[in-house]
Design a binder for these strands. Structure first.
Lengths: 264, 264
DNA sequence: TTGCTCCTCACGTCACGTGAGGTGGC
DNA sequence: TTGCTCCTCACGTCACGTGAGGTGGC
């Protein structure tokens, strides 16, 4: 059998597992050009590496093996073109998706890191860069449960606002005064999406941290006000509460870490 | 159960199939915050949409559910960061891979289309743009089988030359004269990789097509020579035989379509 | 003879999908 | 009562992976 390759040889040449080659043969996707009539050994030709490489490209793109098998059985230039056309579109979508995932993970990591470095006991004054956001509609807080309804409404806006809820989220208070009056009830929710249509402006911010569930800022509100008074600072513009460590990082809601910042 | 969401409601909010939510509950990856003690109904809280969205991002990146489950059970900022670090690397690799697949499909489609438009009976003169290639080592043709050994050697160089054999391939003859003398035995093989380190120069090329297996150019060689003589053209530089429709497009090797071109 | 490769067959795995049969809420 | 949703349990699916037991080539 000098001019043919055994399963192992062909496996090495093509980079495909021998067990996969047997499976592909079994389902009729890709078979060796000959079988030894005596011992049933599979023998491939070197040229088959071209066809099998094309199959691996498609299968690595999650094209169902049945679809590829159909293609292999008809084998006309037109049908190949058609599949490639479709796949180029799918690939384009997939690459956009991966880009979005990258952006989601990156944004999350940045915020988690910020939370790990934060000292919840301190108020600080720092320059913050611009940050893009997608901001939801005005919240309406009913009696009773403080978060359920407005948060639900925010989530339901996701589609409409082309908002991806995998990004970190936060609450926006229209002014420092409104925060002081109702620290647990943000006027809007937002998601920290770097492709957002709204932005938190760059500038000097008064920053505080607090541990606890979304609604518990009572102590921090006072501390921020005192700090601002002592340093003769006038908060202006909206106040942002970004949930750095929540559900994802910590099982215990009382340990959630929130960063609160307002421009001064 | 006003403040809780049923499986269907949570499914709609999160975009995750109800059956998937049940499966994730079953394997201990993600469970509703409460169960009705009477009928065992699952009830989710709206806040859980944050955690589940993070899970879907990871699972859509093919992180094993067990890995995600471990993460969910420890839930520390440091362990999340570690996973995100790894995933950013994996994502980077994956995006490069998809880019390569896109390039492979695109290059193949271009050549297949060219083949569909070609008229094998005609010789033509055309301007061709530069094309990148990865060229293998010099072929050595032994007696007997004309293709097996050199083609095998070419395939085995793939790793070393960082050559991806999923791109279309072809044969290179160092000169028109060498092609005339031995049309079936190219001096080198090459792969049509747009990121290749070698190139086929842009310029005016004498182009012919032929149907048949890699080695059968006898008629075409003469026709090209006659055409060149009649039009007072002097072929120079290497001759390229690009296999437009082979194994992938056509089951019958006698119908393979090869484009032969040489600069004039 | 020894070690290696090859074969088939059966069963496992992962992340669900699909009914089947039955209960519960408005 | 009707229609809808929910439940569990069992089995199917896709693309392999993993031995188990046995044969064949150098």
């Amino acid at each position: 059998m000098k001019d043919f390759l055994s399963v192992k040889e062909f496996s090495k040449l093509s980079g495909i597992e021998a067990t996969t080659l047997r499976y592909w043969d079994e389902i009729g996707l890709f078979s060796p050009i000959r079988r030894d009539p005596g011992n049933n050994y599979r023998y491939y030709s070197p040229e088959q590496v071209i066809a099998v490489n094309f199959i691996t490209v498609l299968s690595s793109l999650n094209v169902p093996l049945k679809t590829i098998a159909n293609l292999e059985h008809t084998r006309t230039p037109a049908s190949i073109m058609e599949l490639i056309d479709r796949q180029e579109y799918v690939l384009d979508m997939e690459m956009r998706r991966l880009h979005e995932c990258y952006s989601i993970l990156h944004t999350r990591r940045e915020l988690i890191k910020r939370g790990m470095q934060a000292d919840p006991s301190k108020i600080e004054l720092r320059q913050m860069p611009e940050r893009r956001l997608v901001v939801g509609a005005d919240n309406v807080f009913p009696e009773g449960d403080p978060f359920y309804e407005p948060f639900m409404r925010f989530c339901n806006q996701a589609d409409e606002l082309r908002m991806n809820l995998s990004y970190p989220i936060g609450g926006l208070h229209k002014s420092f005064e409104r925060f002081l009056a109702n620290p647990g009830q943000p006027d809007k929710f937002f998601s920290v999406d770097p492709a957002g249509n709204a932005k938190k402006e760059a500038g000097t911010y008064l920053i505080g941290y607090v541990r606890g569930y979304y609604g518990q800022f009572d102590d921090l509100a006072q501390r921020l006000r005192d700090y601002a008074a002592q340093h003769a600072l006038t908060p202006h513009g909206p106040l942002y509460a970004i949930y750095l460590h929540e559900e994802i990082c910590l099982a215990d809601p009382s340990q959630y870490l929130v960063q609160v910042c307002v421009a001064v």
